[in-house]
């Protein structure tokens, strides 16, 4: 996570969030994002199912959608409950983490080719 920290801070700025974010977060953004994997795939990269991929989503879209679920503005079966577990800052941090993931199907083969 250390490695992503500078990028994370930079993205927050471009995203129009005050520099408060990193310090105020009680949870590692990656640790939060990993919780989504059982439904949305490893790194949010399951592209072939009805529970949609999260990888590569526009962070503003991700954030807005989660806030809409949380505030009951958007019809859903389960995401309203899930979204009620996260603060604004936590949702934004996940949005930025997922935005960094390639919008491609997770394929463990790529582990053998990286580096």
């Amino acid at each position: 996570m250390k490695r992503l920290a500078p990028l994370f801070a930079a993205s927050l700025l471009t995203f129009g969030v005050q520099a408060q974010a990193n310090e105020d977060l009680r949870f590692d953004p990656e640790a939060m994002a990993w919780l989504c994997a059982p439904c949305h795939g490893t790194q949010g990269r399951e592209l072939y199912e009805s529970m949609p991929a999260l990888a590569g989503l526009d962070p503003e879209f991700f954030t807005q959608t989660m806030l809409d679920y949380r505030e009951g503005r958007r019809a859903t079966t389960i995401m309203d409950r899930v979204a009620r577990g996260f603060s604004d800052a936590e949702i934004k941090a996940m949005a930025l983490w997922f935005a960094e993931q390639p919008a491609e199907q997770w394929n463990p083969e790529e582990l053998n080719h990286a580096q």
Partner: peptide
């Protein structure tokens, strides 16, 4: 962002968050 990562010398590593371990 990919460009940004590259210029930061993080390459594929930070892109996917994983690395060729096997």
């Amino acid at each position: 962002r990919r460009e940004l990562l590259k210029s930061a010398g993080l390459g594929a590593l930070a892109l996917s968050g994983i690395f060729g371990a096997s």
